[in-house]
Each structure stands twice: as C-alpha cells, then as structure tokens.
C-alpha cells in the first residue's frame, strides 16, 4: 500500500520501495564440540515487494541457513547470535515463539528441496494441506478442501479432487513438488522461501517447476527468496541476486548487473565456471571448463581478512588482513571487496 503511494507520487525519481524483507548483519553460528562454526557471519540482503531475490552460493556458503533463520527454524546446535530480520517492518528475531508460529505458513511460507521427503507419508494430500488451513484460517473441513482443490488447480495438478484423497507415494516427483508449492501458497503468504526447489527433480521436470514458480510469482505478485547453487536457475527467475561465499555476502545487484557487469572476483569466477553452449569442452578443440582453484575456508576458525582471499586472483596483502564491508558502488549494487573500494576492518 505504502509503496504504491510512494511510486505514484514520485514517478520519475523512483525511490527504492520499502523492502518487504530486510536482513541486516545476520549471524547464525553452530556451537559444536570443536568450537563455533560461523555459518552465517554478518549477512545483509533485502527483498522488495513482488520481487524474486536469488541467493546463490556453493554448498556451505550459508544460504540455506540464512533462509531457515528467516523462519526462525535453524536447528540446534545452530543459534542466531545477532542481526535483524525486518519483515514488513517488524523484527522477526524479537518475536515470541507463538508470534512466529502464527506467522509461519501464513505470511511467510517455504518450499522445500526434496518433494519426496517434505510431505508426510502417512497423511493424504487433502489432510495435510487442509490441516494448515484449518489451523491458520479456522476454515471448516469442507472450506479447507475447497481451498486445497483451488490451489492444486492453480499449480497445474489435474483432477485435484482425486488427488485430495491420495497419499504422497501415489504421486510422481514433479507432482509432489507441485503439492509442495500449493502448500506454501495456501494462506496467500506475502513472502515465499524456496530452498533449491528443483535440485531433486529430473531436468525436464525442473524446467516445468521453474516456469510454474515464475508464473505464480508474477500472477500473485508475491515476493520470493530463491536459494540455489545453480546460476542458470537464478538467471531465469531472479530480479535481484545476492551472491554468498563462506557465510558472507560478496555482491548484491539486480540480475542483469550480476550477469553483465559483475564486480566481485568471486562472482566473476563463478560466472566463468558456468558451462557455455558455444564452448567445446570435449573433442579436438576442447578447453577445460574453468574452475575456482582451492576450497572454501573452514568456518570453524576462518582465516583473518577476506573469506575469499586464498582463492582470489586479485588478492593482495591487505586482503589477508582486513575483512571487507559491504559498500554500495552504484544504486542497488553493493559489493564487499577491498579492490572495489570497500572499507576493511581487522577481523
């Protein structure tokens, strides 16, 4: 509402709309016997209304933990140790467990990676989706069934009335993921978190599911956080992209900037290591697919300086000493790199 007014009053200057979700300096640490693993260590990102944010990074970069902590569902031994998660202006980290329960599934919902394991095997589709509606919206059994049928139709499931009585094992993988998407949309949430929603699916099904998600996102004007390691997926889906590495944000910008004018050396390396259709990696004229040499640092005792310094082609002595802070280099484009003008702190 506010954002519409704002954009209407200033059509030319287009001030950035109030973000739906703003994560500031989020810190989630795992307290294990060997010490403290800094899985998420000072992460900032924002999601604007009606926009899809892609969070990209390799395994262990903290992207999944970040999305789980928006739900306040990080499992022990992980614990949120700092930061703010502002959702529609309210700090989720300050909410009571009861307030979070009322919010989950209703205003923020989640789509899971593996459709085979994220549906309860012993309840029918209608029972487990209906339960959520009856709990949150106090619908009757019949009203809940009608709403579930409506949602199953929306996600492209044929014969939804029959599916209602079926169990997860009676559906195919792609169908189960559609049910997972329908579950997330039951209460019309304003934010949907999708954690690798296509990774566990066949390639042909992946395309269908991505298309469905993009279509639903546009039609329902919802905001989405799409967590993935797949650059191809974010290229298709995301309006804005946040690149994460070793528990920190490297770069955040709109999708076109990330793909056409990446600034952070990690983002550049990541894009270079994507296979290209016009390049031959086999045969006589082959050249190897570029990779990023080395491994991500151990987050148990991260080395001082920039997390990426030992793999970075541009690293200098100060990169080994100073941790770069996120700096805005252009409107809507921020980067954390001493070589791009970021300030550094000794840490």
């Amino acid at each position: 509402m506010l954002s519409t007014l704002a954009s209407a009053s200033s059509p030319v200057t287009a001030a950035p709309p109030a973000p739906l979700l703003e994560v500031r300096d989020l810190r989630v640490h795992f307290f294990v016997r060997e010490g403290v693993v800094r899985a998420v260590d000072g992460v900032d990102f924002r999601v604007n209304p009606g926009e899809t944010l892609g969070i990209v990074g390799e395994s262990g970069s903290g992207k999944t933990v970040s999305s789980m902590s928006i739900m306040r569902l990080v499992p022990p031994p992980a614990r949120n140790v700092g930061g703010q998660i502002l959702f529609e202006g309210e700090d989720l980290l300050a909410k009571t467990p009861d307030e979070m329960e009322a919010l989950r599934g209703r205003r923020i919902a989640m789509i899971f990676q593996n459709p085979a394991t994220s549906l309860n095997p012993i309840y029918s589709i209608g029972a487990q989706l209906g339960e959520i509606l009856r709990w949150h919206l106090k619908l009757s059994r019949a009203e809940a069934d009608a709403r579930v049928v409506e949602l199953l139709t929306l996600v492209g499931i044929s014969d939804p009335a029959t599916r209602l009585r079926q169990f997860p094992h009676e559906l195919s993988g792609g169908m189960k993921q559609r049910v997972g998407i329908a579950r997330a949309l039951l209460c019309n949430p304003s934010l949907v978190l999708a954690d690798e929603p296509t990774t566990a699916l066949d390639v042909t099904i992946q395309a269908q599911i991505l298309e469905l998600l993009a279509d639903l996102q546009a039609r329902l004007k919802m905001s989405m956080v799409l967590v993935t390691h797949d650059m191809g997926v974010v290229a298709r889906m995301a309006h804005r992209i946040t690149v994460m590495y070793a528990g920190r944000v490297c770069e955040s910008a709109d999708a076109a900037t990330i793909f056409n004018a990446p600034q952070h050396p990690y983002t550049r390396a990541l894009l270079e290591s994507m296979p290209r259709i016009d390049q031959s990696y086999t045969g006589t004229k082959r050249q190897p697919l570029p990779t990023i040499a080395g491994r991500p640092p151990n987050l148990l005792n991260p080395p001082p300086g920039c997390r990426f310094h030992d793999r970075c082609p541009e690293a200098s002595a100060e990169c080994r000493r100073l941790l770069p802070l996120e700096t805005t280099i252009a409107p809507g484009h921020s980067v954390s790199c001493l070589k791009r003008g970021s300030e550094g702190i000794a840490a």
């Binding site: 919902a109 994220s118 579950r183």
Partner: peptide, 9 residues
Amino acid sequence: TAARASGLP
C-alpha cells in the same frame, strides 16, 4: 520441518 514451517504448533 515442513510442518513447522507451515506454522503448525
């Protein structure tokens, strides 16, 4: 986790 993420108590 999905049941918790759906807001069930």
